[in-house]
């Protein structure tokens, strides 16, 4: 399968604290990759680094055979329309409605008419099962609904890659099911994805491949089947700990 995104020897520190020492992995087109690791291993930092929300110290990030880690903020704008980020909290603009939140990237980056934007927003709201929410304000939504609106917004420009930051964190089982279903529908629509999660059952259900980050580097990189049957002590301990959690 064609590699769409590649991370090579990525290193990142905050002041004296080294978060990533040497992280390398790749993402194939149409694949959904799960990024796992204990709390504080820098999974979200890694995800943010992929679209330049954090600057990396060393290494390379290659998207469609082009280095993007050395691009300026302005040069990154078009990249960010192709690699879309879904925030853990949803990060919805709280002063405007759900409709305007989802319409924002469409008005910014497309030449669609208002009617076409409205049609597209309603289609996205239907995908995330929130057809009746377009006039609501973000403060009127539950945490799960905010995440789904955030996902709809990140899908608006039909990106190549969706980055999901803890999409099921803090949700009740019913909302987790809805988000899992949504991610699976994104997979069916052909989106590639990278999912940061603590929820191993969710990762098993939506990911093709899993990468475990430990002590600043990739400790495990393999399919879900390989993960389940791994003899590696750390992977076994990781599984046990996560189950205990």
């Amino acid at each position: 399968m064609e590699t769409i995104l590649e991370v090579k020897n990525l290193a990142k520190s905050f002041d004296e604290k080294e978060v990533h020492r040497d992280v390398s992995f790749s993402l194939a087109r149409g694949e959904t990759l799960g990024l796992l690791g204990h709390s504080g291993t820098g999974k979200s930092v890694l995800l943010r680094s992929l679209i330049g929300l954090e600057h990396i110290d060393r290494g390379q990030i290659i998207y469609r055979n082009r280095r993007i880690d050395d691009l300026t903020e302005t040069e990154l704008f078009p990249v960010r329309t192709k690699i879309s980020y879904s925030f853990q909290s949803g990060a919805l603009f709280d002063s405007v409605s759900v409709f305007e939140n989802i319409a924002y990237p469409l008005f910014e980056h497309t030449k669609l008419s208002e009617a076409e934007v409205a049609r597209k927003v309603r289609e996205l709201l239907r995908i995330v099962n929130l057809e009746d929410a377009e006039d609501l304000m973000p403060s009127d939504l539950s945490g799960g609904m905010q995440k789904r609106v955030g996902l709809a917004r990140s899908m608006a420009l039909d990106p190549d890659i969706l980055l999901y930051d803890e999409p099921t964190a803090g949700l009740d089982p019913m909302n987790i099911e809805k988000v899992v279903d949504l991610i699976n529908r994104c997979r069916e629509r052909g989106f590639s994805g990278i999912l940061v999660t603590h929820d191993i059952p969710v990762a098993r259900r939506v990911c093709d491949r899993l990468v475990i980050i430990n002590e600043g580097q990739v400790h495990f990189d393999g399919s879900v089947a390989e993960f389940n049957s791994s003899d590696d002590d750390f992977v076994k301990t990781f599984l046990l700990n996560e189950r205990a959690v």
Partner: peptide
């Protein structure tokens, strides 16, 4: 408030300044 709730990051992540 937008900064601490990641709305500023969202503006950047959506390809705007």
């Amino acid at each position: 408030a937008m900064n601490v709730t990641q709305q500023v990051d969202a503006i950047r992540a959506l390809g705007t300044s």
